[in-house]
């Protein structure tokens, strides 16, 4: 009675685990870009504090390990640069504000993960996050769940949707239910769905709801 399932399990398990291991690593490695990597983005923020989603547009920039830039053009002007453990925020014409990343330790882990993701560094990523993949080469989804308990209290998961070797959406799900969806590269200039809900955005990211 027991023999057949056991045999099946023995046969299947190595294949499954190999697939799971190769999956995220290959996906992440495929995301690696020539430096500097830039992409326009459209960000939709859903927050309980807001009575409507906030839409922002601008450009994302990746300059190498631990160095990120994010420029907001609409609806306000802001440039955030992260380098050498310092976050510099410049708003409009005001003097730039500096925050030491060390002040918010969980954020440091989060940005380390983001940087590893953009750098195609699967090993670093796997150290800080639990990785799972879904889908096939045409449309795939990579989920990152933080391992650090303090970060988990703030961020539930980061989900990357993509097609072939390109990311289409970065979704950050906060632990409190808020989320922010960033459409990048091919989707950056796409027309937003109506009504603008997380569900409709998800369909766009997964390529189900084509424009």
């Amino acid at each position: 009675m027991l023999r057949l399932p056991t045999l099946l399990a023995c046969l299947l398990t190595p294949c499954l685990s190999a697939a799971a291991e190769a999956g995220p690593a290959a996906l992440v490695a495929g995301l690696k870009r020539e430096l500097p990597a830039r992409t326009p983005y459209t960000e939709v923020r859903f927050a309980q504090m807001f009575d409507r989603p906030l839409v922002a547009r601008g450009e994302l920039e990746y300059l190498g390990a631990g160095r990120l830039g994010k420029r907001v053009d609409v609806p306000y002007a802001e440039t955030t640069t992260i380098a050498d453990g310092q976050v510099k925020v410049q708003r409009g014409t005001r003097a730039p504000r500096e925050i030491a990343l060390g002040q918010i330790p969980e954020l440091e882990g989060f940005l380390r993960g983001f940087s590893a993701l953009l750098g195609g560094d699967a090993d670093t990523l796997a150290r800080d996050f639990e990785l799972t993949t879904r889908g096939d080469g045409a449309h795939w989804q990579l989920s990152l769940a933080p391992k650090d308990t303090r970060l988990r209290r703030r961020v539930k998961s980061i989900v990357v949707d993509g097609a072939q070797a390109a990311a289409r959406c970065f979704t950050i799900n906060d632990a409190d239910g808020d989320s922010s969806v960033m459409l990048v590269e091919s989707l950056a200039a796409t027309e937003l769905p109506k009504p603008l809900t997380p569900h409709n955005l998800d369909l766009i990211c997964r390529g189900v709801l084509a424009k």
Binding site: E78, L107, D176
Partner: peptide
């Protein structure tokens, strides 16, 4: 409040959210 909107889009958002209301 305009600055808070910006803050909520910044890395510090998770820290500030519980305080804002």
């Amino acid at each position: 409040l305009a600055m808070r909107v910006e803050d909520l889009g910044s890395p510090a958002a998770t820290l500030l959210k519980p305080l804002l209301p």
